[in-house]
């Protein structure tokens, strides 16, 4: 590494060897911090809001913001999916669900929020304690990034020759997983059909199967 730095100096460029270990306050850092702050604000607003229409909209906004955050973290495929599914599909679903159930949530008494707060606090403390042992953010040699993930990037040009490694892993290396996911989506669609769909197939209307 020192040699490389020396080499770049030899070429006669004005590049100075940087110190990459310290994350500086760069533009990317500022963007990430802003997005995370916006995400947190949206999440808190979702707790406080009682009109479910507004909560559904906030959850769409949350999805869109997280899609932007995914782009900042290089996950363009995931961002694309999250923007299409989270901000589009799931908001429409939540709204149609709200139209069929309730518009406004009943207020929750203060005393009932204490136990959840304690549970959530303990869980958060445990998780934060766990992150102390984790490799730092963006560490290329972290166990999560070092083995199979790197192998996929190295092997894709010779095995599959598809530029998009995510597609290669999705459809070829882990085709079996994706098959399972497709079957899960299919099954969920069938479940919706069974729970609600009989009426939808026969042209709308509820099916009164006698609970009333």
């Amino acid at each position: 590494m020192m040699l490389a730095a020396a080499a770049s100096a030899e070429v006669g460029s004005e590049v100075t060897p940087s110190t990459p270990e310290v994350v500086g306050f760069t533009g990317a850092f500022a963007v990430e911090l802003c997005l995370l702050a916006l995400l947190a604000a949206t999440a808190v607003a979702m707790i406080r809001m009682r009109r479910l229409f507004g909560v559904a909209m906030l959850s769409g906004i949350y999805s869109l913001l997280s899609a932007a955050f995914f782009v900042a973290l290089d996950a363009v495929d995931v961002a694309f999916t999250e923007a299409a599914v989270g901000a589009g599909m799931s908001t429409v679903l939540l709204l149609s669900g709200i139209a069929l159930t309730a518009k406004v949530e009943m207020p929750v008494s203060r005393t009932r929020t204490i136990a959840p707060l304690i549970i959530v606090g303990v869980t958060a403390a445990a998780l934060v304690y766990a992150t102390i042992d984790m490799p730092g953010f963006g560490d290329a040699n972290a166990p999560a990034n070092a083995y199979v993930g790197r192998a996929y990037i190295e092997q894709t040009p010779s095995d599959i020759e598809v530029p998009n490694v995510v597609t290669a892993v999705l459809a070829s290396y882990r085709g079996f997983d994706t098959f399972g996911e497709t079957v899960v989506v299919f099954t969920a669609g069938l479940a919706c059909l069974l729970l609600l769909g009989a009426g939808a197939i026969r042209g709308g209307g509820r099916n009164d199967d006698g609970e009333h």
Binding site: P20, V23, L73, D74, A75, V76, F137, G138, D139, A140, A142, A144, N145, G149, I153, T156, P157, P163, N164, V165, V166
Partner: peptide, 12 residues
Amino acid sequence: VGKVIGGTAPIL
């Protein structure tokens, strides 16, 4: 967790 600093999107 999957982000690598200095990395780019995994499209070769």
